[in-house]
Amino acid sequence: MKIVALVKQIPDQAAPQALDPDSLRLVRAGKMIIDDSDSYGVEASLQVAEKLAAEVSVVSMAPNQETAGVRTALAMGAASAIVVSDDQLAGADALLTARVLAAAVVRTGAELVVAATESTDGYTGTVPAQVAALLGWPALTFAKEMQVDGGTVRIKRQTEDGFEEVEAELPAVVSVTAGSVVPRYPSFKGIMGAKNKPVELLTLGDLGIAAEVGERVTGVRDAEARAAGEVFEDDGSAEERIVAFLEGIKVL
């Protein structure tokens, strides 16, 4: 069996974010890393693969044939990767992204696709279910636990007030929440081995997809700033100021 882990490569989130003044798109330059959220998806895929003697492939869409973040997933233990890179994909929305990812998944012959619930830079949170809908597979979303057993995938799915247990026969798409597993650190051997693992670079033409985007940014403005109040250093009696503040707003 083959499992695909979807991986987004994003700018290091420790670096300040900015919008390009002309395109109004997020500037995605500089060093790219694996989205931290996706390291959970990769780990969850590897755990299933190890139990079932299956293989994990990574699928990623990225600018400039970026592979640095994908190499991290390979170093963790994924066997191969597909990276779709095309200048026409600049400004791709979630639906176009999902079309690209779904088409790449079809090439792998995978029966299970694992993704994070949302990226750390965009937070759209729709791509996994869009990929599922495009493939015609059930979308088991927001899983905080996942198990695969005899062709059935079972998850504990996050709900507004708790969780529900959901299952489906494969093929299926599962999105996992951060914290669902503990991502492994790549070993030195893994890092060295990742350099020789196959990474297939594809363009939109290879997948037969047109770069159609259905949405546009019409404007950006500064939000009404919330004025900062009083900040003081605790001298051992901060609790008195807090109590006085709570009394002032009639909470106490």
Partner: peptide, 14 residues
């Protein structure tokens, strides 16, 4: 495809 998903149980953690 959603018919192929089965919700087996549901629990509150509030």
């Amino acid at each position: 495809p959603a018919y192929r998903s089965r919700v087996v149980s549901s629990r509150s953690e509030e």
